[in-house]
């Protein structure tokens, strides 16, 4: 029984991160990469997963070290831990996904200052046990990835007329002759699309009565 309830907590941690505390649509954090890299689906996914990896790792490490980190210097310590993982991810991408690395550009190092990661470190990992921090990281990371997926899918389909461009599965959604609404692949379109999506989520959440 005990394991069951434990499992429940973990599942809750994950689902909370995806739905109720969705970092993009509910907490409205980490907006910079969300807006910047979602021109193409593949970039959005790459960004989401990279952030998720950093988040999960840093959550676990911070949670594990939480008793040994002096309170006064905890923020600098967290930043060092996060920055380390970001550097690792940056190096991995550079080595194995050079194209993606080029597309994401400066936003890879900027994961360090993504409010989501430091926010979770302070709000959750710095206080809760390792396992829960792990699942919290997975939940929030997945939530972020899902949001980026939705936003970049929308922007790519409308703004470029393609789906999963630059991959083996690329398709022209409305056929080759479709003239895409290019504003959505521009910065302006990113703002507008995210704004409208936020409004839509607010409506949906209100209808479903999720607080």
């Amino acid at each position: 029984m005990k394991t069951m309830s434990n499992m429940n907590i973990y599942l809750q941690d994950i689902s909370r991160g995806i739905v109720r505390d969705n970092p993009t649509f509910r907490l409205v954090l980490g907006m910079c990469p969300t807006l910047a890299v979602t021109v193409y689906l593949i970039n959005g996914l790459g960004m989401g997963l990279s952030t998720a990896v950093v988040l999960i790792c840093s959550n676990v490490v911070i949670s594990a070290l939480r008793r040994y980190i002096p309170d006064q210097v905890r923020i600098p310590c967290y930043i060092v831990i996060i920055a380390t993982f970001v550097t690792v991810v940056e190096m991995l991408l550079k080595a194995f996904q050079p194209k993606l690395y080029a597309a994401l550009g400066v936003f890879i190092p900027l994961i360090v200052v993504n409010c989501i990661i430091l926010g979770r470190a302070e709000a959750f990992a710095g206080k809760k046990p390792v396992l829960r921090s792990l699942f919290d990281g997975i939940g929030i990371g997945l939530g972020f990835t899902v949001s980026l997926f939705i936003l970049s899918a929308l922007r790519e389909v409308i703004g470029s007329g393609t789906f999963l461009a630059d991959t083996a599965y690329a398709v022209h959604v409305f056929g080759e002759s479709f003239e895409p609404m290019a504003v959505f692949s521009q910065p302006a379109g990113a703002f507008i699309a995210l704004g409208l999506l936020l409004g839509l989520t607010n409506v949906i959440f209100k209808k479903l009565k999720i607080d």
């Binding site: 907490l27 409205v28 954090l29 923020i75 409010c115 430091l118 926010g119 302070e122 709000a123």
Partner: peptide
Amino acid sequence: VLPGANCGA
């Protein structure tokens, strides 16, 4: 008790 992210939200 605040997250300390200084996000400004």
